[in-house]
């Protein structure tokens, strides 16, 4: 078993933090190994952000993802740049608020309205990356949702715990069923 994720978007959305949490959750709450890398740009906000996560039942040697099974894009620029990398049979996850999709025959496309739901239910997109994690692990059930909850609660200060937990459930609620990518 090997699952290769690319999480991409705009700097400041928290996709890199989400990638770290995903990998850490896999390490602590499954029997799998996990490696996370990221593409660094000089910008902190507003530029493009991309992080790769590999979760596997064996030692992970080459740590970068060249062809993801799972691609998450929270910006049009990221989608246009990375969409063609997805392996045949893989899945592309986008938010229609950020990404206007084009057709792709060899991969499945799942649209999750993270932005609009977060604005409506939470009043801001501050926790959009946590919503994303909820949706992601519901869609690709490689890590238990409560494993992610545990890592999220330990990563951020106590006062954010309830809000993050709600954001996680909100994201998970946006996905009805899981998909298989390999």
């Amino acid at each position: 078993m090997i699952e290769r994720f690319v999480l991409s978007g705009t700097g400041g959305q928290g996709v890199i933090t989400a990638a770290i949490i995903l990998a850490e959750s896999a390490l602590y709450h499954t029997e799998y190994n996990a490696v996370q890398t990221q593409v660094y740009g000089p910008e902190a906000r507003g530029g493009s952000a991309r992080s790769d996560v590999i979760i596997a039942d064996r030692e992970i040697l080459f740590p970068k993802v060249l062809e993801p099974n799972v691609l998450v894009c929270l910006s049009q620029m990221a989608y246009d740049r990375y969409c063609s990398l997805v392996r045949p049979g893989g899945v592309v996850i986008t938010d229609p608020h950020y990404v206007k999709r084009w057709q792709h025959a060899s991969s499945r496309h799942v649209e999750v309205p993270l932005h609009d739901t977060a604005m409506r239910e939470l009043g801001s997109t501050q926790a959009i990356n946590i919503c994303l994690l909820g949706a992601l692990v519901r869609l690709i059930p490689i890590v238990p949702l409560d494993g992610v909850r545990d890592v999220v609660s330990r990563r951020f200060p106590e006062r954010f715990r309830a809000a993050n937990s709600a954001a996680l459930d909100l994201g998970a609620g946006l996905v009805q069923e899981s998909v298989t990518t390999f």
Binding site: I20, A23, L27, N33, A34, Q36, Q38, Y40, P63, K64
Partner: peptide
């Protein structure tokens, strides 16, 4: 850079 920035167990 790869080893420095990569996260693993």
């Amino acid at each position: 850079e790869v080893v420095g920035h990569m996260r693993e167990a």
